[in-house]
Design a protein around this nucleic acid. Structure first.
Lengths: 186, 186
DNA sequence: GCAGCTCTGGACCAATCGGTCTAGTCCTGC
DNA sequence: GCAGGACTAGACCGATTGGTCCAGAGCTGC
């Protein structure tokens, strides 16, 4: 149960999940409140700017989760290719565990949000953090810096694109083929 | 000028553009009406189910435009690689001509829409049409059927992912590097 | 010239939107 | 035991949402 979580944590978690399912504008504040079992006062206490603040917090929370998945995937890896492949499979499994309709937590939450620079900058920064985390593992595993940068960007692009196709097809197959795509196998 | 266009066409065009910019739920019916210079009655005359019908029509209109771009890119091509590269550059140019913030017309319009099966099926079908159009050119240009299918899917995934990254970075560089990823250059 | 359509124009509606405000509860330090 | 901040609870708000409805404009065939 989530009773142990604070109201703030529940708000962020539920907001992240709901935004991922239906996008920023597709989810009303009331629904997030209901899912979190919190009254309106709590939301505006923890997030003075309301929905927008909550969305940024939700995206950052989701981003932290993704970074952890990257660490878990690369920790036991003996090569960049191996780590990246594990990462793709982990995300495919995550996708399978959902109802096959989750979007990218960052795009869904921030790209579709109010068109202000704050959201745009925040999303760009989260994406770059993601790519840099993978690139760092590439360098650690012996790749030259420029190749690590190129490869990690390719992994990101492959995952982002394949995630969309997996969503349309309601199955994780495209995600599982990302390593072939990135490393020119098959 | 767009005076020559019918009310219906103006509605579909403007809806497609606005949805692409801010997603299905991010755009109100009133705004589409205002952009099209049409009253409410016209919308519900041409699209009895209102916003949802309009969104499907807008996605199909955008899809037709994309298919035309594919034809234009592959028509003079002498190899799949050449056609696909031209396609990527054409889309990069298109992205540059916008304010660097357009989303994929299909995802923005249908993925973020109401979570019903109609939207999901429609988006899946449009994506498959897209991939099949590219694959057909692959076969025409001498690729074995299975390789054409794999390659065209890779192009689609690369473009979809790179488009997202281009959006975050506010520049079309990632799109222009898609051919390198797909064909293992560089 | 009028019957019968397609289409337009816009008033109107209930529901929902995100957000404000304040009274009250709870916990903690003293 | 009480002072005071952190937090909850929910009534309330104006604006906007998507949608309905109907009167009438404009065109076409007769």
């Amino acid at each position: 149960m989530s009773e142990a979580l604070s109201t703030r944590e529940r708000l962020v978690m539920n907001a992240a999940l709901l935004f991922q399912q239906r996008g920023y504008h597709g989810v009303g504040v009331a629904e997030i409140l209901e899912a979190s079992g919190a009254p309106k006062g709590s939301l505006y206490h923890h997030f003075p700017n309301g929905k927008a603040d909550l969305a940024v917090a939700a995206a950052e929370w989701a981003s932290a989760g993704l970074l952890q998945i990257i660490e878990d995937a690369f920790a036991p890896a003996e090569s960049f290719e191996q780590g990246a492949t594990t990462l793709c499979y982990k995300l495919a499994k995550l996708f399978d565990l959902s109802d096959h309709w989750l979007g990218c937590p960052i795009s869904s939450t921030l790209f579709e949000g109010p068109s202000n620079d704050r959201f745009r900058r925040e999303s760009a920064q989260i994406f770059e953090t993601w790519i840099e985390a993978v690139a760092a593992h590439g360098r650690r595993l012996g790749l030259p810096a420029d190749e690590a940068a190129r490869r990690s960007e390719a992994v990101w692009i492959g995952l982002q694109g394949a995630w969309t196709l997996s969503r349309a097809r309601r199955g994780s197959d495209p995600l599982r083929r990302v390593p072939d795509f990135v490393f020119g196998r098959g």
